[in-house]
Design a protein around this nucleic acid. Structure first.
Length: 272
DNA sequence: CGCATTTCCTGGAGGC
DNA sequence: TGCCTCCAGGAAATGC
């Protein structure tokens, strides 16, 4: 499930390979995964040049010239791939794009279709699914601002999972950050002491930086544009380790369900 | 209003 | 082996 580090890895790879390239042809196989400007991508993308590929929250964003953006939400199983044009077409490939100045072909695949593409143009109408503006980026967030986000009494984990509060954290990196900070996931956010809040933000940044360095976590589906997995899973301390021993204290890692999501933590290292 | 629960969707896992 | 049911999970909609 692509979260911030996976989206960052994908965006960096695509930027390296597609910067300056101009779309020549696009084929959409499922129109219902495209949102935003209602004009078909087949007409709007060809002729536009890729100025930059970057990441915002968990989205991969293509900045184009003439001015437009293509935002890609990967959802659970979304993949952006760079392939040779003769590569066999995998099931659930919803879009293919070709370029005027490279043989590489870009494909968007998403079996579960929780993801999608948003074409954002100046003054363009917005149709289809909504792209809610994400909260602040954790890697550049200042401690003082982070503390002001923690005024709710919701459990800290459900707050960190809320993309409108803070962008880019999903189930894996929430659990790993809370462990690294020694904070119990059910702690009401407003009950965190300022020093705990500061420690949590430092933990979030460290976990994300290490995960980016490892090119993300591959559990089942995640792959980068070249089909390679990330290796951060080896460094997981709690995520999907229910019943195994805590690497710090030896206690048995527990799993609870919080707002419908599996939540893993060490009952000793993360006290209420 | 604030929070929890349900919905979307498919493939993989587990039961028998 | 094969069929069936269950379930994960991000984000939006719905419910309380």
């Amino acid at each position: 499930m692509p979260e911030l580090p996976e989206a960052e890895t994908i965006a960096r790879t695509l930027h390296q390979r597609l910067e300056g390239r101009t779309f020549s042809r696009v084929q959409v196989h499922r129109a219902d995964i495209v949102h935003g400007d209602p004009r078909p991508l087949e007409e709007t993308l060809p002729g536009r040049r890729v100025v930059r590929v970057s990441r915002r929250a968990k989205q991969v964003v293509f900045e184009l010239d003439p001015t437009a953006k293509l935002a890609v939400r990967l959802g659970m199983t979304g993949r952006l791939m760079l392939v040779r044009p003769d590569a066999p077409l995998q099931p659930h490939t919803h879009m293919q794009a070709w370029f005027a100045d490279t043989a590489e072909e870009l494909r968007f695949c998403d079996p579960r279709r929780f993801g999608g593409l948003w074409l954002l143009t100046p003054g363009g109408a917005l149709t289809g699914r909504r792209l809610t503006p994400p909260g602040p980026e954790p890697l550049t967030l200042r401690p003082a601002e982070f503390r002001t986000l923690l005024v709710r009494k919701r459990p800290i984990k459900s707050l960190l999972m809320d993309q409108t509060i803070i962008a880019g954290l999903g189930n894996i990196y929430c659990d790993e950050s809370l462990f690294a900070a020694g904070v119990h996931p059910l702690t009401p956010a407003r009950r965190l002491r300022p020093e705990q809040a500061d420690r949590l933000l430092r933990a979030i940044k460290q976990v994300l930086r290490r995960a980016i360095a490892a090119r993300g976590s591959t559990i089942l589906d995640y792959r980068d544009p070249d089909g390679n997995g990330g290796t951060f899973r080896r460094q997981h301390r709690v995520y999907q380790r229910e019943g195994e021993k805590c690497r710090s204290c030896g206690s048995v890692i527990r799993r609870i369900v919080l707002t419908g999501r599996s939540t893993f933590f060490c009952p000793t290292c993360q006290r209420r």
